[in-house]
């Protein structure tokens, strides 16, 4: 199970954003997991709270969007979704295809909890602790 490594990489990435934005905490994180990314959704959901413990992501919610495999056909130019990992153009049946979707594991959005003092001061005073 490599999802703990992945969850740690994700937490590290979000912590950088929390610091950069001068936020208090990350409240929710959305990721997209490609069907061919080699990432198992359930294992990731299990590992994420463990990796967030003791960080600014403690208690953060994880939303996982699953992205399907997409093929772009060199012969007919269409983008289609294969069935059952059969990498053939669903429109014209060609195997002259390129994978254009479903490979990536991406961080898509972070909901940040902003520091109250900065807001209450109403000014630029988003104190930077970097």
């Amino acid at each position: 199970m490599h999802e703990l490594s992945l969850a740690r990489a994700l937490v590290e990435q979000v912590e950088t954003i929390v610091r950069r934005e001068g936020a208090d905490a990350a409240l929710a994180v959305t990721v997209s997991v490609g069907a061919l990314s080699g990432v198992d959704r359930e294992a990731l959901e299990f590992a994420f709270p463990l990796a967030s413990e003791g960080t600014s992501l403690a208690g953060c919610r994880l939303r996982v969007e699953e992205t399907p495999v997409e093929l772009s056909c060199d012969d007919c130019g269409q983008t289609t979704r294969p069935e059952r990992m059969d990498m053939v153009c669903a429109r014209c049946g060609s195997r002259g295809i390129r994978l254009t979707g479903g490979m990536d594991f991406l961080l898509r959005s972070v909901e940040l909890g902003m520091r109250e003092e900065g807001a209450a001061a109403g000014g630029p005073g988003r104190s930077d602790h970097v």
Binding site: L10, Q13, I17, L107, R108, L112, G113, M114
Partner: peptide, 19 residues
């Protein structure tokens, strides 16, 4: 005074294995 929203959402497209 008016408050800034206390939550803010940042959208991105960043590979998790970027490092």
């Amino acid at each position: 005074h008016t408050h800034d929203p206390a939550t803010r959402t940042i959208t991105l497209q960043q590979r998790v294995l970027e490092r």
